[in-house]
Amino acid sequence: MLVYGDNINSSTLDCTDDMARAGISGAGRSDSLLDSCADGMEKGTGCASATRRADTAHLRAVCHFLASYAGAMLGCGATCIRIFKNITRMVETLHMEWDMIVLPNHVLITLSDGEGKVTVQESHSIMKLPVSYQLNARLSNLSWKVAEGKVDFVMARKLFTHLISHHDKGLRKPWSVMLLVVAANASFCRLFGGDVAAMFLVALATFVGYSYKIIFLKHKWNVRPIMLMCAFISTVIGAGGYIFSLSSTPEVALGTSVLYLIPGIPYINSVSDMIAAHYLCGFSRFMQGLVLTCCIALGMMAGILLMNLSIF
């Protein structure tokens, strides 16, 4: 573990080398500070100021890591309370003090040494990652490893970089996820009282809509038009129950055909954040879910109007 004192310079130099090797931004700045510190120490001049600069560089490196960590956790769908617990666990081990502000697209970390002499701040964008509890679990586990001293700060950075760059490793293929989602949405239809024909219609609507979702995501479309288009496509297919009188529960088929698109995790996370008094993050997640829901509603409305259903 990193400790304050005489050994800090070599430790922090190792740490920034790792940062540079891992390609983490901010490493260059820390490098220059540490290089000047090391020069100062070698010449035997300005030792106190060099140590202070090394302390600041170390704090900055830790702060940058924590901001990236928080950005990754928020990006993969972790609740604020879990992020606070994880970061507090790591910071306590390093004998530092910290605070965090979560904004809709960024996270701001303030870190100070135990004595409050040096304070640094780092902001980081919330990473654009798919919701992943696997990554959430691995990052939480990393915080435990740091807290228990099984991994030092340098290694933690390496592991973090590895986890983020390989976050999609071991995940199911999109097409296999699609088959599970098709079965799930058809089951949903049944739970809402749909008959077998309605279940088949919903399965078909989900299959086509989700296939388009995969294709659009592959072409890096914005998620909002994707939701609108997929809702439109699924609604048009789901309306088959009304048009061809295929089912005795066409309303259930139509209403359920788009449910696979509903952003359930942002909604649940938002309420969870609000319960834990993280109102800003909770509200921003709620708005994120609401905007996507509005896109789905618009797509659905367009589909219903196109099919000229008598319900409107």
Partner: peptide
């Protein structure tokens, strides 16, 4: 059916 629905929706959120 609740179990099937849960498996499908869980797979979207990439659980361990």
């Amino acid at each position: 059916f609740a179990a099937v629905a849960a498996i499908g929706f869980a797979s979207i959120s990439n659980p361990p």
